[in-house]
Design a protein around this nucleic acid. Structure first.
Lengths: 212, 212
DNA sequence: CTATCCTGAACGAGCGTTCAGCCATCGGGG
DNA sequence: CCCCGATGGCTGAACGCTCGTTCAGGATAG
C-alpha cells in the first residue's frame, strides 16, 4: 500500500482532525456497509452515524466512493500488519503455514462483515482503486507462496504450482465469512483445524519430512 | 427447487408468452448484471435489451427484484441438472469426487459472471428468497457430503467432519470465477487438476484404498 | 366490440452533492 | 481589557438527476 494510497482531497485544513474524522467515518461506514451493503447505505445515514451533517462529511471526502476507499484502506492496513506478525513465526514450513492459516482465519473471523463487503462491493471501485486492491492481495499470496516453495524445496511439501496453491489456500480461508450462514453450527477452532488439516495433508505437509 | 419456486405474479395471461419473455428478460439481465452488477443496471436498460418498453416489462414482473430471482432460478436449475449428471458417475468415491469437482469447475467456468453475480448480489434478496438460495446450496453440499461419507466408510478417505469438508470443497471451486483476475495465467484444466489433487490428497483419497 | 398486450410520458421518492449562511475561536489594535 | 474582523469548520435546505413504478391511451387480433 505505502506510496500507493491516493490521499483523499479534503476541504478541512487541520490534519489531526481529518485523521480523526476519517476514522469515525470508517467506523460508521463499516458497520453500516456490513449490515446493508454499500449501495443501500446513503451518505445521509453515514453522516448521522458520525454525528455530523452531510455538508460536514463532504469536507472530509470528495465523493461517496472515497468512503469505500477509506474502508478498504483500513482493511488493507489491518491485514498487512497482522499477517506479517503471524508469518514472523520462525518454525518450519509446516508450522509456518499452519500459523498463516490460523492467522488468516482469525482475522477473517474478527472482521467477517468486512470481508463480506470486500467481496461484494469491490466491483464498485474504479479501475485505479481496484488495482490497489489486487496489489495487496498479490502481496498476501506471495507471502504464503514463499512458505510453500520453501516447504517444497526442503522436502516437506509436494505441492504443485506454488502460486496457484497459495491463492487457493487463502481463498479457502474466506469460506468462514462467506459461507457463515452454512457454518453456523461450527466454531472458529473447528473450521481452522479442518481447513488446516485439509491443506496440510493436501500438499503433503503431514507425510513429508518432519518440521525442523 | 421444484415446489420451492414462488411463481412470479404477472399481468399477461398467455402462459407461453410469459415463459418466452421471462427467458428473454433473464438472458438480457444476466449479460447486464455480469457487466455492471445489479444495482448499476436500470430497469430501463433491461427493457431496452429485451426490446420492449418499460411498461411491457412490468407486465411480466412485479418488481425489479423479480428479475434477480429469475436469474437465480435459472442458475439453480442449470446447476441442479448438470451436477446430478456428473454425480451419476458410478465409479468409486475417489473418481466420483473428482468428477464432482470437475463438473463444478466446468460449470463455474461456463458461467463465471453468473457466479460473480450470485456472490455479489445475494444480499439484495429478501429473506424469503435468500432461504431458497440457501436451500439449493445445502442440496449441493449434501450431494458431495454423501460421496465423502461413503468414501470414509469404505476406507478411501479419512476426512474429518464430512459436512464441513463438503462445504469447503465446493467453496474452493469458486476460486476460479472469484479470483479470476489473479488466475489469468492459468487455464481451467490446470486449476481443476490442482484443486482436485489438493482435495483428494487432503482427505486421503490418494493414500487410502484404491478405487474399486 | 372486446380482450389482450404494448407504449412511453409522468410521478414521486431518494439519491449524491453543493452552498449560502451560521457560529466559535483567536489574535492584534485601540 | 475589550472589541472586531477573519478564519475554519459546521449546518441543512435546496438542486438536479436517476431510479423504480404506474397508467391512460394506442394498437392489434379474433
Amino acid at each position: 500500500m505505502p506510496a500507493a494510497i491516493r490521499q483523499i482531497e479534503t476541504v478541512v485544513k487541520d490534519r489531526a482532525l481529518i485523521e480523526r474524522r476519517h476514522e469515525q467515518i470508517c467506523d460508521a461506514a463499516l458497520r453500516l456497509f456490513a449490515r446493508k451493503g454499500y449501495h443501500q447505505t446513503s451518505v445521509r445515514e453515514i453522516a448521522e452515524a458520525v454525528n455530523v451533517s452531510v455538508g460536514a462529511l463532504y469536507n472530509y471526502i470528495k465523493s461517496k466512493e472515497d468512503i469505500l476507499l477509506l474502508v478498504y484502506h483500513r482493511i488493507f492496513g489491518l491485514f498487512q500488519t497482522k499477517m506479517s506478525e503471524a508469518m514472523a513465526n520462525s518454525g518450519g514450513p509446516t508450522s509456518q503455514l499452519r500459523a498463516a492459516i490460523e492467522a488468516t482465519l482469525k482475522l477473517y473471523d474478527e472482521y467477517q462483515d468486512l470481508v463480506l463487503v470486500l467481496y461484494q462491493e469491490s466491483h464498485t471501485l474504479r479501475r485505479e482503486a481496484l488495482q490497489q486492491l489486487f496489489e495487496v492481495d498479490r502481496r498476501y499470496v506471495s507471502m504464503v507462496q514463499a512458505i510453500i516453495e520453501r516447504g517444497n524445496r526442503e522436502g516437506h511439501f509436494v505441492a504443485g504450482d506454488s502460486n496457484l496453491i497459495a491463492i487457493a489456500i487463502l481463498f479457502l480461508c474466506a469460506v468462514w465469512p462467506l459461507k457463515r450462514w452454512n457454518l453456523k453450527k461450527y466454531d472458529l477452532a473447528t473450521v481452522t483445524d479442518e481447513v488446516a488439516n485439509l491443506v496440510l495433508h493436501g500438499i503433503g505437509g503431514a507425510h513429508g519430512l518432519p518440521d525442523d
